[in-house]
Structures are given as structure tokens and as C-alpha cells.
């Protein structure tokens, strides 16, 4: 800043001060999480550990406590993201390339779907899953998660596809390539970064989802980390806050890493909000 008048400088000081206060308030619960995870005698309140130790992490890093639930989370979110991306690419292609009568109603329906309060639906979804005998089925849960993330994924994929120039496809059509060949050989390779964004976006959403697997899955060996953390809290929560915090961090790190990656790819932290802005 070249010209900094006194009023500008005091404005900046005030802004910084207010922001730091708000930032501190936002940071407190997060700082507790980190401090408690390295404190063998953690409580619910922020306190500096007497000795920093990784014992909590050692304690939770057992197959039944952490690894199986994390693997289940990976299967659920990975499966959901993969299905969602494939189905979204297929749906986005005709929507992006042809002007059909179905486009407008379909896209409005999709937008409407993004707005539905999914948690409101869990009671009827449970009844439906009971009727189809899909309760406690990983496949059923993956398909439901995919369906709920599909509207947003179609919308995002279509806007990424709209920015892929059509000229290369025209060359493929001239050579007599079919629609599917053009899509898989020409369009998809050109929009790999966009598809990665959609995949990660869906993956993050499914990884963090608690309510859906909480209602639809029952067997302890199928529960993803979100639900097993909740069960762990119910069983040992009143004593083992340190382990709870350590497990929570282990479970959170993958999505935070993915978020940082995706916001770098899209340039700037406003990327996800921009994608959701509609």
C-alpha cells in the first residue's frame, strides 16, 4: 500500500484487532481438540498437557478402534464418489451438448434436489430400506449416499463440461465415433481436473456424513468412523477424552488435506463456495 493515511492505518489496526478476537473464539474448540489428543489426562477444557505424549494415538490405532472404521469410511465414501462421478458424467454429457426438451425440467429437478433437506428424509428412507431389505447393507448405503450427492455433482460436472471446447469432439464425430466413444476418449480426458474436483467434493461430503450410516447401518464391523466415534464416545467418552480427540483427528486429517488440495487446484479458498453458489 503506497498511501497510508493515519485513518487508513487506524482502520487497519481496528480490523486486525476485531478479526483476531473473532478468530480466537473460532480457534478455541479446535485448539482443545489438538491439545487433548496429545494429553494422556485430557479433560473437556483447554489445558496445556503436563507432558506431550502420543499415547492416545497409540491406544486408538488398533484394528477394531480405528482401522476397520476408517476402512469402512473409505469404502463408503470412495464407492459413493466413484458411482456419483460416473453417473454424473453420463448425465452431464447430453445436458451439456444437446438442446433437448428434457434439459430444462431435468436441471430444475436436479437443482430442486440439491435443496431438499436430506436429514428430514431419514425416517422415510429407513422405512423404505426396511421394505427393500437393504438395512445394514453397504451397497444400499453407498447407493443412497450417491443419490443424495448426485444433484450437486451433475450441476458441477455440467458446468465443467460446458467449458470444454466442442471443436475436438467435432473431429471425433467426423471420424464416425459414437457418443460413448467421444465421451470416454475425448471429453473425459479433457476434464480430468474438473472430475477430480467433483470426486473430492463428493468424497468429503460422504466421509463426514454421520446421520445416513447411523440410521442405515447396524453391524459394528460395517460402521464407518463417524458412527464408531459416536459409539466410542458413548462407551468410553466420559473417561477417555484424549483418545476421543486423537481418533477424531485421525478421522479429520484426510478431508482437511483433500480440502486444502482442492482449494489449491481451484485457486483460492472461495472455490467450494463458488461451486455451491449456484
Amino acid at each position: 500500500m503506497g498511501m497510508t493515511s493515519p485513518s487508513r492505518r487506524s482502520l487497519r489496526a481496528v480490523s486486525n484487532g476485531v478479526l483476531l478476537l473473532i478468530g480466537a473464539a473460532f480457534a478455541l474448540p479446535l485448539v482443545w481438540l489438538v491439545l487433548a489428543s496429545v494429553d494422556e489426562r485430557a479433560t473437556l477444557s483447554i489445558k496445556l498437557p503436563d507432558a506431550v505424549s502420543l499415547q492416545n494415538f497409540v491406544d486408538v490405532m488398533t484394528p477394531e478402534k480405528a482401522f476397520v472404521p476408517l476402512l469402512n469410511s473409505l469404502v463408503l465414501s470412495g464407492g459413493c464418489a466413484l458411482i456419483t462421478v460416473v453417473v454424473a458424467v453420463l448425465a452431464a454429457y447430453p445436458l451439456s451438448r444437446y438442446r433437448m426438451r428434457i434439459n430444462k425440467p431435468f436441471l430444475y429437478g436436479v437443482l430442486f434436489g440439491t435443496c431438499l433437506p436430506i436429514t428430514a428424509m431419514m425416517v422415510p428412507v429407513y422405512s423404505l430400506f426396511v421394505a427393500f431389505n437393504l438395512i445394514d447393507s453397504m451397497g444400499g448405503t453407498i447407493l443412497f449416499l450417491a443419490a443424495t450427492s448426485l444433484p450437486m455433482a451433475i450441476y458441477m460436472t455440467k458446468s465443467f463440461m460446458d467449458s470444454v471446447p466442442i471443436s475436438l469432439e467435432e473431429a471425433a464425430w467426423m471420424d464416425g465415433a459414437s457418443m460413448m466413444t467421444t465421451l470416454t476418449r475425448v471429453v473425459v480426458p479433457l476434464m480430468r481436473p474438473g472430475l477430480a474436483v467433483v470426486f473430492i467434493f463428493v468424497f468429503i461430503g460422504a466421509w463426514g456424513n454421520f446421520f445416513v450410516p447411523f440410521v442405515l447401518l447396524l453391524s459394528p464391523d460395517k460402521l464407518p468412523a463417524a458412527v464408531s466415534i459416536f459409539a466410542f464416545f458413548g462407551q468410553y467418552g466420559t473417561v477417555a477424552y484424549g483418545q476421543l480427540a486423537a481418533f477424531s483427528l485421525l478421522y479429520s486429517v484426510p478431508v482437511i488435506t483433500l480440502y486444502v488440495f482442492i482449494s489449491r487446484v481451484l485457486g483460492g479458498s472461495s472455490a467450494l463456495a463458488g461451486a455451491v453458489k449456484g
Binding site: S15, N16, L19, L20, I22, G23, F26, A27, L28, P29, L30, W32, L33, A36, L44, S45, I204, W207, G208, N209, F210, A226, I229, F230, F233, Y241, L244, S248, Y251, S252, V255, I256, Y259, S269
Partner: peptide, 27 residues
């Protein structure tokens, strides 16, 4: 300041909901 405050605010949002809920419960 912008970077630091932004990181805290966004982290609370990016955290999985169950973890954020525990952090708020403890707070």
C-alpha cells in the same frame, strides 16, 4: 491476520460434522 483467521473459520466448517459436534460439546 486474514490468513490465520480465515484458516480457523474454514477449519470449523471443513471438519466432519461429528468431530465439530464433539468440539462444540466440549466447549
Amino acid at each position: 491476520t486474514r490468513g490465520m483467521v480465515g484458516t480457523f473459520v474454514v477449519t470449523a466448517w471443513v471438519l466432519p460434522e461429528i468431530v465439530a459436534s464433539f468440539a462444540a460439546y466440549a466447549f
